Amino acid sequence: MAGQDAKKGYSKTFVATIGVESKEILGYYCTSASSIEFENIPQNLSKRLPKYPAPAMLIGRLAVNKLIQGQRLGERLLMHALSRAVRATSEIAIFAVRVDALDEEVKKFYLHYEFVPFEGKEFSLLLPMKTIMKSRNN
């Protein structure tokens, strides 16, 4: 599915393997352009923002092979994706990185990294670029 989306220009997929030649996938994530409707941005973040959709980078399908879950590969993949968002801001505007959690456990993973839920959408979360940039300067 990720390969088909990439061929259509819908997403880019990044894969973690043991080595360059390895065919065993340890984990992966996909990125694509997205937006966040103004009414879904939490009120504490929406002050002084224009009242139209905010540009975002979507991290989709972040997953880790069940055999190595608990070894912090998910964290490393997330940090890799956030680094891509930082690089992208030199070329395009990105207000936040967004994710759509599949369940409560996945939501807790993202909350641990300071993502905040959308207004009215329990499993959609965002991390403002300002927060990402601050964490990189500390």
Results as ranks from 00 to 15, higher is better:
residue 1 M to N: 13
residue 1 M to L: 07
residue 2 A to G: 10
residue 3 G to V: 05
residue 3 G to I: 02
residue 4 Q to F: 08
residue 8 K to V: 06
residue 8 K to D: 07
residue 9 G to E: 11
residue 13 T to Y: 04
residue 13 T to R: 13
residue 13 T to D: 06
residue 14 F to L: 12
residue 15 V to E: 10
residue 15 V to P: 08
residue 16 A to M: 08
residue 16 A to F: 07
residue 17 T to D: 05
residue 17 T to F: 06
residue 18 I to C: 09
residue 18 I to M: 08
residue 19 G to R: 13
residue 20 V to Q: 15
residue 21 E to S: 15
residue 22 S to I: 12
residue 22 S to F: 08
residue 28 Y to H: 15
residue 29 Y to L: 06
residue 31 T to P: 05
residue 31 T to C: 11
residue 34 S to V: 05
residue 35 S to N: 12
residue 36 I to S: 00
residue 37 E to D: 14
residue 37 E to R: 14
residue 38 F to P: 02
residue 40 N to D: 01
residue 42 P to D: 04
residue 43 Q to K: 10
residue 43 Q to V: 13
residue 44 N to E: 13
residue 44 N to M: 11
residue 46 S to G: 09
residue 46 S to I: 04
residue 47 K to Y: 05
residue 47 K to H: 07
residue 49 L to I: 04
residue 52 Y to K: 09
residue 54 A to K: 06
residue 55 P to D: 05
residue 55 P to C: 07
residue 56 A to H: 01
residue 57 M to V: 03
residue 59 I to N: 02
residue 59 I to E: 01
residue 59 I to M: 07
residue 59 I to K: 02
residue 62 L to V: 09
residue 63 A to C: 08
residue 64 V to I: 11
residue 64 V to C: 05
residue 65 N to E: 10
residue 65 N to Q: 13
residue 66 K to D: 10
residue 68 I to A: 11
residue 69 Q to P: 06
residue 70 G to V: 09
residue 71 Q to C: 14
residue 73 L to G: 09
residue 73 L to K: 12
residue 73 L to W: 09
residue 76 R to A: 10
residue 77 L to M: 10
residue 77 L to F: 10
residue 79 M to I: 14
residue 81 A to Y: 04
residue 83 S to N: 15
residue 83 S to Q: 15
residue 84 R to H: 15
residue 84 R to Q: 15
residue 85 A to G: 11
residue 86 V to M: 07
residue 86 V to F: 01
residue 86 V to A: 06
residue 87 R to S: 12
residue 87 R to V: 06
residue 89 T to Y: 05
residue 89 T to P: 02
residue 89 T to K: 06
residue 91 E to G: 09
residue 92 I to D: 00
residue 92 I to G: 00
residue 92 I to F: 00
residue 93 A to C: 03
residue 93 A to G: 04
residue 95 F to D: 00
residue 95 F to P: 00
residue 96 A to E: 00
residue 97 V to S: 03
residue 100 D to C: 15
residue 103 D to T: 13
residue 104 E to H: 11
residue 107 K to F: 04
residue 108 K to W: 04
residue 109 F to K: 06
residue 109 F to D: 01
residue 110 Y to S: 05
residue 110 Y to R: 04
residue 111 L to M: 09
residue 112 H to I: 11
residue 113 Y to T: 06
residue 116 V to W: 02
residue 116 V to Y: 02
residue 117 P to L: 01
residue 118 F to D: 01
residue 118 F to T: 00
residue 118 F to Q: 01
residue 120 G to S: 03
residue 121 K to P: 00
residue 124 S to P: 01
residue 128 P to R: 00
residue 128 P to K: 02
residue 131 T to A: 08
residue 133 M to Q: 09
residue 134 K to L: 01
residue 136 R to C: 14
residue 137 N to G: 13
